[in-house]
């Protein structure tokens, strides 16, 4: 009865290891797993925020580059007046600054495209890369890691490390020079072609981010399902069946009362009761 009372008041099947050592061991394991799992959940949620911010920044970068492309096509027109060309050049310069700003977006105080140098701005005003090429890892489930794409150089440089390596910053400098010189052949020819390659590069990087994002979404779903399962499992092991325990307690209580009243009855009669 005492055991039932402690079960009813705590709502737990066991409150002491000695009541069922193996069950308690299992419960402790499950609690550890659940705690770890909840930590993974918070990691995944944070990481999704990070990746979404990256995606947003890349979308902004893409539209800025598209605008620069339009301006190049416009500026390649040989019939433009000096003033018009100057205006276009100015706009391109502003757009380059804009591009640097959007790629310098931070998430929770950390720059998202500077490798592990998360406290340094990845791009200067001329869009030259300042970060490193280390990727950041996150553990999203036991033994499962996801690498975040944080190397800003990857989508601002073509053919990295090869002879024909080409940086977006250099290309933009060339474009501005060409605009200032009115070199419409170069603008409509090689420079435009190169910019298109860079646009493709940014898009493919964006789809890489998208893939990571999908992976994280799936991981989150799995994590939450797992959490639910684990909690169910823990509850099955740890929590009492209230209706059953109440019935047991009531049964025991009536047995107890019955034995008390029987005890009182058999104690009563004594020979002395019948003697004067």
């Amino acid at each position: 009865m005492q055991k039932l009372q402690s079960q009813l008041s705590s709502g737990k099947v066991v409150t002491r290891p000695s009541e069922d050592p193996l069950l308690v061991s299992k419960i402790m394991d499950l609690r550890n797993t659940i705690s770890t799992n909840e930590q993974y959940n918070s990691t995944i949620t944070d990481t999704i925020g990070w990746v979404d911010t990256q995606d947003g920044a890349l979308q902004g970068a893409n539209s800025t580059v598209q605008r620069i492309r339009e301006l190049i096509i416009y500026g390649a027109n040989g019939t433009l007046s000096e003033d018009d060309r100057n205006a276009i050049t100015e706009e391109v310069k502003i757009k380059v600054g804009e591009l640097a700003d959007v790629l310098n977006t931070n998430f929770d105080g950390r720059y998202i495209f500077s490798g592990t140098k998360t406290t340094d701005k990845p791009f200067n005003a001329a869009l030259e890369y300042q970060g490193n090429d280390k990727n950041i890892k996150r553990e999203i489930s036991t033994g499962v890691e996801v690498e975040l794409a944080v190397d800003g150089e990857e989508f601002t440089t073509l053919n990295k490390g090869q002879l024909d390596e080409q940086k977006l910053s250099d290309l933009l400098k060339n474009i501005i020079t060409a605009l200032e010189d009115g070199d419409s052949d170069a603008l409509s020819g090689k420079l435009l072609g190169d910019l298109d390659k860079h646009i493709d590069n940014i898009l493919s990087f964006r789809s890489k981010i998208g893939a990571i994002s999908n992976r994280l979404d799936a991981a989150k779903e799995r994590n939450e399902a797992e959490n639910l399962n684990l909690k169910n499992l823990l509850s099955q092991r740890e929590d009492i069946d209230l209706a059953q325990k109440y019935t047991e307690a009531n049964t025991l209580n009536s047995v107890y009362l019955a034995s008390l009243s029987i005890g009182a009855k058999i104690l009563q009669p004594s020979l002395l009761d019948y003697l004067r």
């Binding site: 066991v14 419960i27 402790m28 609690r31 705690s35 930590q39 990481t47 996150r138």
Partner: peptide, 25 residues
């Protein structure tokens, strides 16, 4: 089992390390 014993605190410590791995700065 409890939320004050060694088991719980050990977990909390490992969780803190993971939290730090997300926010190393």
């Amino acid at each position: 089992p409890s939320t004050t014993g060694i088991n719980f605190n050990l977990n909390e410590m490992f969780n803190a390390w993971q939290e730090l791995s997300k926010n190393p700065e």
